[in-house]
Simulated assay, not measured.
Amino acid sequence: MKLKRDMRREQMLDVAMEIVRNQGADELTLGTLAAKAGVSRPIAYEHFSTRAGLLVALFKRLEDNYVHWLRSALREAPTELTAVADIISNAYFKCLAQFGPEALAISAALKGTEEMAAQQRLMRNVYVELMCDALWPFSDLEDERLRPVCVGLLGAAEALASEAQAGGISQQIATSVLTSLIVKAVADGPHKAR
């Protein structure tokens, strides 16, 4: 049965994730993907062009799921800073827990590539904008100050995630610490000129 182009791409991404999960990111090539997905190599190359393109597509899929979860959770958020900070923290660490080692393997396989650097910049901007929008109602920070604060908070989240994934701290502690950092940064940060 011939699948529509977007359905074929999603099917191949599902197969690619299975390969990463069961065999590791090093085993994922466009050739192995084509064989396991039951498509010709030219079809795999038509969709992803390069191995890095395939890995970026997988990484983007994971990040898009996180952004979707976070947006959904924030729509339902109470209008209180700690609750919003807790939603941001929980969404970040629950997403990492659900994606598990596959996300780390994909990220590691892409380290140092221009494609990954571009994707990370793009997603960092999306995350920071989401955080700024969610935290702005609770902040006295000027726009030009809130954004760098959110960039720093995202850096803290990444460092906490790394420590949690290495087993240095629990996910619960990482989530709690990030919530506290968000509240402190927004509530006690440098204030707008009056």
Rank of each mutant, 00 (worst) to 15 (best):
Q11E: 06
V20S: 04
V20C: 10
D26Q: 09
L28T: 00
L30S: 02
L30I: 07
T32M: 10
R41T: 04
P42E: 02
P42K: 07
P42G: 06
I43M: 15
Y45P: 05
Y45Q: 15
E46S: 12
F48R: 11
F48N: 08
F48G: 10
A52V: 08
G53E: 01
F59M: 10
L62S: 07
D64W: 04
N65V: 07
V67I: 10
V67H: 01
S72T: 12
A73R: 11
E76W: 13
A77M: 12
E80F: 12
L81Q: 00
A85T: 02
D86Y: 03
A91Q: 07
C95S: 12
Q98C: 07
Q98A: 11
P101H: 05
P101S: 10
A103Q: 05
A108P: 02
L110M: 10
L110G: 04
T113S: 10
N125D: 11
N125G: 13
V126Y: 06
V126C: 10
L130M: 12
M131E: 00
D133G: 11
A134M: 09
P137Q: 10
E142A: 15
E142D: 07
R145Q: 03
R147S: 07
P148N: 04
V151E: 02
L154T: 00
A159I: 05
E163N: 05
E163C: 09
A166V: 05
G167I: 07
G168C: 06
G168Q: 07
I169M: 12
S176N: 02
S176K: 05
S176T: 04
S176Q: 06
V183A: 04
V183W: 02
K184Q: 08
A185L: 09
A187T: 00
P190F: 12
H191P: 08
K192H: 13
A193V: 13
R194A: 13
